[in-house]
């Protein structure tokens, strides 16, 4: 860590997560290396089975126990007080104290994360009291301010609403208000707009963007939606079958993807459909589905550029300035 390169807020290095299941031990995450700097949004993108949500659970210390555990690598988080803590090694209670104080999170379905029998004001006030040591009256006033902050109209009245009285978009705003109550350094957003309509999604994305700017948070934004990635991300890490296969700043990633999976994934978008010889517009698709490989590149079974050497050993992450790629052939096919 040199002075010119400030330490990242969150640095995940070669993370491996294992689960014990009926069929033996599986490792849904086996090679995740990524970093989030203060004030930037890193989008972690992948399809189902890519391990992106497991990665976020590992960071938050929320892996289902005792089946799941971090079995390798490190998750370094820079404390506000100075110094770094390895979340992969830290005790459950240490991680719990950080969660909600310096690391906050929002999920896809806000209804299940809110307590149905408390008003949203009470829930925010409780969090504020816990983290800031405010009294009852101050905490309620703060709750109202938080609802204002997340642009809930008529906040003075809505603080007394119960979660079920709100729409999905409003509940997600409440979740964001709750997350912001402790002024976190890192926000982990796991598919926060997936359950929302597009016009509401646009509002929530803009809100997260505004808060990131104003509060200087780092955001780890987990999504499967490439359109959302292009909208929110400064940098992007693409996951496939438990590994980060490519990461780069958002423009180079979309304009000049290097890993065969990233390239193919972008070509699958309906908006990029090409007109075929018969005049019909056809989308490129990737044959087959995600499958587990014993060794070699996880994408090899579906890759058009595959050759024998792709199927043996571990494929190393190759670094370029501003980009890493996990592929043996990316230079020849570029």
């Amino acid at each position: 860590m040199t002075a010119t390169h400030p330490e990242p807020l969150l640095a995940i290095n070669n993370l491996e997560v294992s689960f014990r299941t009926e069929e033996g031990t599986v490792t849904p995450v086996r090679g995740v290396t990524l970093s989030v700097n203060a004030g930037e949004t890193l989008a972690l993108v992948g399809e189902s089975g890519s391990g992106k949500s497991v990665t976020s659970l590992a960071v938050m210390g929320l892996l289902p126990r005792p089946a799941g555990r971090i079995s390798g690598g490190s998750i370094l988080f820079r404390r506000r007080a100075g110094g770094a803590i390895d979340l992969a090694q830290a005790s459950a209670s240490e991680v719990r104290r950080l969660r909600g104080a310096e690391i906050a999170m929002i999920f896809q379905e806000p209804m299940t994360s809110l307590n149905p029998v408390l008003t949203v004001g009470e829930q925010i006030a409780e969090s504020v009291r816990l983290h800031r040591g405010l009294g009852q009256g101050d905490a309620m006033r703060r709750a109202r301010e938080m609802l204002d902050l997340v642009e809930i109209p008529d906040a003075g009245r809505r603080v007394h609403d119960y979660p079920h009285q709100m729409s999905g978009g409003m509940r997600q705003r409440v979740m964001i208000a709750l997350a912001m109550a402790c002024d976190p350094a890192l926000l982990i957003a796991d598919e926060p707009t997936t359950a929302l309509d597009v016009t509401i999604q646009a509002q929530i994305l803009a809100l997260i963007e505004r808060l990131r700017r104003e509060m200087g948070m780092g955001v780890l934004f987990i999504t499967h939606n490439l359109g959302v990635v292009a909208e929110v991300a400064d940098r992007v890490a693409v996951m496939y079958a438990g590994e980060v296969v490519e990461s780069a700043p958002v423009r180079p990633l979309f304009h000049a993807p290097r890993h065969p999976y990233t390239r193919a994934l972008l070509d699958c978008l309906p908006a990029r459909a090409a007109r075929g010889a018969d005049g019909r517009r056809v989308v490129r698709s990737i044959p087959g589905t995600v499958s587990r490989v014993a060794e070699g590149c996880g994408f090899a079974p579906r890759c058009e550029f595959v050759r024998d050497s792709c199927r043996v050993g571990a494929i190393p992450l190759e670094s370029e300035p501003d980009r890493v790629v996990r592929c043996l052939r990316w230079r020849e096919i570029a």
């Binding site: 359109g227 292009a230 909208e231």
Partner: peptide
Amino acid sequence: ASPKADPDAPKLSRTL
């Protein structure tokens, strides 16, 4: 409001 998979596209305008 529909996100475009293009980082150079104009950011989503909050018309609604």
